[in-house]
């Protein structure tokens, strides 16, 4: 039994929403200009990665290396008007395809609309990773077993997706006081995380489980927990052309993707973590720029205050902060689950 059975009317409404998302994604293909198309190199069964980036020259070298090591065979990237040399980093790589757009990030539902099209066009029948440039996926035993092993294992159990929790990493002291060289592991500069202080609730008509909280909730949303960032994500999905991401990559439709498959009601499956390198140096400047552009996610004054605070590069550290040592630690803390994997 799935964890939650939705009433038929809700299911139907979600179906309409999904169709609309797919249609909008289809329409958004006009926004995208192909800059470098190596998709002919994609072979059956390859694991694909989809991302929207803007000015990520700092993070991309390690990002690409990390996911290549995990077994990603092709990167499909939407470049939303980068001006810091991001395009040069991507150009020439045989396993990277790039589309350019100068359209509004916000109007494209934070890039999801563009990716919806690419996922539909290229992702069908593949395991797809949809992540941001500041998110590094890890899972139990990721150092010994790559994504090919994981997806094969999930396939054998007829699981369609791997949930993961966004784990905010932060330094001791102001992010801007740190020093980071591209291609380094961001964990060395951002060694701390909150081992607890997360909570979960079911939200929305799809009743998907949302994990919330973490250091950003602790520092920025202490008085407005309702606005705290959602940390649960569904980055790895065995994609079908009828699937769609609903809100960023937090929730996917059809809703069955967000729950476990029938027979797994004990939820024994594994989960991963997305190491979030948001607080690398330069966060503050970025937050200020984004605020001027007005392209960031916001739900009123509470979020405006959040971006104001981010612009000041605050120290997130607390005595309870824990130094990140690896996936075993996250499994021990219950932030990641090993399941029967």
């Amino acid at each position: 039994m799935p964890a939650v059975t939705l009433p038929p009317w809700t299911r139907y409404k979600l179906r309409l929403i999904r169709k609309r998302l797919l249609w909008r994604g289809f329409r958004s293909r006009h926004d995208l200009t192909s800059v470098q198309n190596n998709t002919s190199a994609i072979a059956a069964g390859d694991i694909l990665l989809f991302a929207t980036v803007r000015d990520e020259a700092l993070r991309l070298p390690h990002f690409l290396a990390h996911y290549r090591r995990l077994g990603v065979r092709h990167f499909l990237i939407v470049d939303n008007g980068s001006a810091d040399g991001t395009d040069a980093l991507l150009r020439g790589a045989p396993d990277v395809s790039v589309w350019q757009t100068h359209a509004s990030y916000k109007a494209a539902r934070f890039g999801v609309k563009w990716l919806a099209w690419l996922l539909r066009r290229y992702g069908h029948g593949h395991w797809t990773l949809t992540v941001d440039a500041d998110e590094l996926l890890i899972y139990p035993d990721h150092d010994a077993r790559d994504l090919v092993a994981l997806t094969g294992w999930l396939d054998a159990r007829r699981r369609r997706a791997l949930p993961a929790m966004l784990l905010d990493l932060y330094p001791k002291g102001s992010p801007d006081a740190q020093h980071y060289t591209p291609a380094d592991d961001p964990v060395q500069v951002l060694p701390y995380f909150d081992p607890d202080g997360y909570w979960q609730e079911r939200r929305g008509s799809h009743r998907a489980i949302n994990t919330m909280g973490g250091p950003r909730a602790r520092v920025f949303f202490e008085h407005a927990p309702d606005f705290a960032p959602v940390l649960s994500k569904l980055p790895l999905v065995s994609w079908h052309r009828s699937y769609a991401y609903l809100s960023s990559t937090h929730v996917a439709l059809p809703p069955v993707l967000n729950t476990y498959q029938p027979g797994d009601s004990n939820g024994a499956g594994p989960s991963g973590a997305l190491l979030h390198s948001k607080f690398l140096p330069g966060t503050a400047a970025r937050a200020r720029v984004e605020q001027v552009r007005g392209q960031q996610y916001t739900r009123g004054p509470t979020h405006d205050a959040y971006y104001n605070a981010l612009g000041e590069a605050p120290d997130m550290w607390t005595p309870a902060a824990t130094r990140f040592t690896g996936w075993e630690q996250l499994v021990g803390l219950g932030l990641m689950r090993r399941g029967d994997w």
Binding site: G197, G213, A217, R218, F221, P225, T318, P319, A320
Partner: peptide
Amino acid sequence: QGTMAGGLSDGAAL
């Protein structure tokens, strides 16, 4: 303490 083991905040709203 402002935060407790595990980074639990002492904020009442949270």
